[in-house]
Amino acid sequence: MNLANRITIARILLIPLFILFLAEYPLWLTEQNSFFGFIHDKGTYIALGIFILASATDKLDGYIARKYNQITNLGKLLDPLADKLLISVALIMMVQSGMVATWIAVVIIAREFVITGLRMVASEQGIALAADKWGKIKMVLQVAAIAAVLLDNVPVQSITLMRVDELLMFGAAAITILSGAHYFINNFKLIQLR
């Protein structure tokens, strides 16, 4: 297994660690156990660090795969899967904690299912659908929005009363819809649905 694929797998393995630190635990557990008490106090910030690290590996594994000619079928499968898992898990955890509206998570996750389905149909016909620039912009905005929500509008709150984290999340949802529609319209004609 090459280095690029190892980095992608590391990104997937960071997801359970992200869950551990972002999860909400019962009060009796956080009061009786110092580790869970620590998670209760600092877990969101540690989860944010893990999320940013995992997100950064997305650029790193792609760079290494291209630079050292390490592009493999396994990497083509795992890389988008790792991205979708990371974003989906973050959104689901944040909905559970009341940080993000359910409809935003549904819109973003549903878009990923639709595009993945389109790619699967194309793959069966021997067509490889590459990500476009809108998909990359969408991913960057989603990462920025999730990070801002995890920060709970800090440090922006000291400058303005505007909820920048909420604006970024609405923007991420809007770009997700637009990028999905753009991708679908541009690639639908390449595929023969039977």
Score class of each variant (00 low, 15 high):
His40Asp: 12
Leu141Lys: 06
Ala145Thr: 02
Gln70Arg: 07
Ala110Tyr: 09
Leu150Glu: 02
Arg163Thr: 00
Asn187Arg: 12
Leu77Tyr: 15
Ile146Trp: 10
Asp83Trp: 02
Leu60Thr: 03
Val149Phe: 07
Val95Ile: 08
Gly62Leu: 03
His40Met: 01
Leu53Tyr: 08
Ser34Lys: 14
Asn73Thr: 10
Gln32Cys: 10
Ile46Pro: 01
Met93Leu: 09
Asn5Met: 06
Glu112Leu: 07
Gly49Asp: 09
Gln142Tyr: 05
Gly98Pro: 08
Leu85Arg: 03
Leu77Arg: 15
His40Thr: 00
Ile137Glu: 00
Glu24Arg: 15
Leu85Lys: 10
Ile185Gln: 05
Leu3Thr: 04
Asp61Glu: 06
Ala130Phe: 01
Ile109Lys: 10
Leu20Val: 14
Thr57Lys: 01
Leu161Thr: 13
His40Phe: 12
Leu190Ser: 12
Trp28Glu: 13
Ser97Lys: 15
Gly126Ile: 12
Val89Tyr: 03
Phe51Ala: 07
Leu161Tyr: 14
Phe35Asn: 11
Arg11Pro: 00
Tyr45Met: 14
Leu17Ile: 15
Ile191Thr: 01
Leu150Trp: 13
Tyr45Arg: 13
Val140Ser: 07
Trp103His: 04
Lys138Glu: 02
Glu31His: 12
Ile146Pro: 11
Pro26Val: 06
Ile7Lys: 00
Lys42Arg: 14
Ile39Thr: 02
Ile12Val: 14
Val154Met: 06
Ile104Glu: 03
Ile191Cys: 04
Val89Gln: 02
Thr30Phe: 09
Gln96Ser: 11
Ala82Asn: 05
Ile191Val: 09
Ala148Gly: 11
Tyr68Lys: 10
Ala147Gln: 04
Met139Arg: 07
Ile7Thr: 04
Ile9Val: 15
Leu86Lys: 06
